[in-house]
């Protein structure tokens, strides 16, 4: 991404680590994955787990409604001014990867309106196994699949499963009912992902999102520990 420090900035461009006033912006974490795998439930659980210690906000990318945003509002996981919905024109992957302008608007507006923020979660609309976030939009991405979607998904790979910074295999409580082999999923995921982490979750319990929250905490610590960006 071009970044010419010679000219005056009015509004950051793309993945600049600092805001126009020179302060460090919030860490942006993307959450993607197939329809129904539990992205919104994961976002809601993360908000509940982190909101007492961090200043956070959420951007949703619904496919055709404001339903995900409304779910988060209904669940009251965050005050309404900390949740924004981006409309994606029937193409959720375009809005998070190919043309990230509406999402960048949303994250910057959130920082302006309710900042300073520590963390912004950007939730993709439910899409397919090839949908990944642009590095111009997020600093790290989580890919959420579930055991009921088929235990062969890790073996099949695809950019989400293979390259996401964290792979979440959700709904482990359903494994016995749908005949999914968690051991096989773990082995296949390790084969596809090498050193990249995988966590198994069940959001039925209060602490279910714990492994994801811990991973986000590590990323945030690394983000704030990095040398202050130069103005």
């Amino acid at each position: 991404m071009h970044l010419d420090h010679g000219h005056t900035h009015h509004g950051a461009i793309s993945a600049d680590a600092r805001r126009p006033d020179g302060t460090r912006r919030a860490l942006r974490v993307g959450l993607g994955g197939p329809v129904g795998s539990g992205k919104t439930a994961t976002v809601a659980a993360l908000c509940r787990a982190l909101r007492d210690t961090l200043s956070l906000a959420v951007v949703t990318n619904d496919i055709y409604t404001r339903e995900d945003a409304e779910f988060l509002l209904r669940e009251a996981v965050l005050p309404p001014e900390r949740i924004r919905a981006v409309e994606t024109g029937a193409c959720p992957h375009t809005a998070i990867r190919d043309d990230i302008s509406a999402n960048l608007e949303a994250v910057e507006e959130l920082e302006d309106a309710v900042g300073p923020l520590d963390l912004i979660l950007v939730e993709s609309g439910g899409d397919n196994l090839t949908a990944t976030f642009s590095r111009g939009l997020v600093d790290a991405q989580v890919f959420v699949i579930d055991v009921a979607g088929g235990d062969d998904i890790p073996r099949k790979g695809g950019p989400g499963v293979t390259t996401a910074d964290l792979l979440v295999v959700n709904k482990t409580d359903l494994a016995p009912y749908v005949g999914s082999d968690l051991g096989r999923m773990a082995r296949d995921a390790a084969e596809q992902r090498g050193e990249l982490p995988v966590v198994f979750t069940s959001l039925r319990s209060e602490e279910g999102v714990g492994p994801v929250a811990a991973w986000v905490g590590e990323r945030l610590a690394a983000w704030t520990a990095a040398p202050a960006p130069t103005a």
């Binding site: 005056t8 009015h10 509004g11 608007e105």
Partner: peptide, 23 residues
Amino acid sequence: QLMRAARATWPGPGLDALAAAFP
């Protein structure tokens, strides 16, 4: 949104001035 894309694609004083005048 276009201003953001344009400033990254063809950076220059004209677009900077526009962004400053219309935040």
